[in-house]
Amino acid sequence: MRPPDQNIYAYTEPVWQRFREPAHAGRLDAGSQVFSAEAGSAAARSLLRLQVELASGAVRRARFQAYGCPSAIAVGEWLAERLEATPLAAWHAIDAAGIRAALEITEDKAHCALMGEDVLRALLQTMSGRP
């Protein structure tokens, strides 16, 4: 698919770039070092799945899938980028406010950033072995 060339609905630049070319979109096959989490719901028209594959205590790959508006998709892409670039110990510092600031998400799309924080918290719980 040729990415859309014009941002006619004026999404913020960080959102638009990630929406049109989500380099980390995809799904990791199940494995002992693959962890997954989801947040949101189809009925609310926003659903985000985040997956990481670990190798010797560090992230080897992060992938996301999203159903929702361009901001929701951009949140997934941004999280996957960050997780690949951030030491595990620093993940807890990533929150909705940080996501909003990084993607310049406006007030009316703030719920997308919250969903990003939710999915990351859920992922951390999965990884720590807690239910």
């Binding site: 859309p4 060339d5 014009q6 941002n7 006619i8 609905y9 999404y11 929406f19 028209r45 159903y67 929702g68 508006c69 361009p70 929701a72 998709i73």
Partner: peptide
């Protein structure tokens, strides 16, 4: 999703 679909189709 509808909004993304429209954004994909400028």
């Amino acid at each position: 999703e509808g909004e993304s679909l429209r954004a994909m189709l400028p």
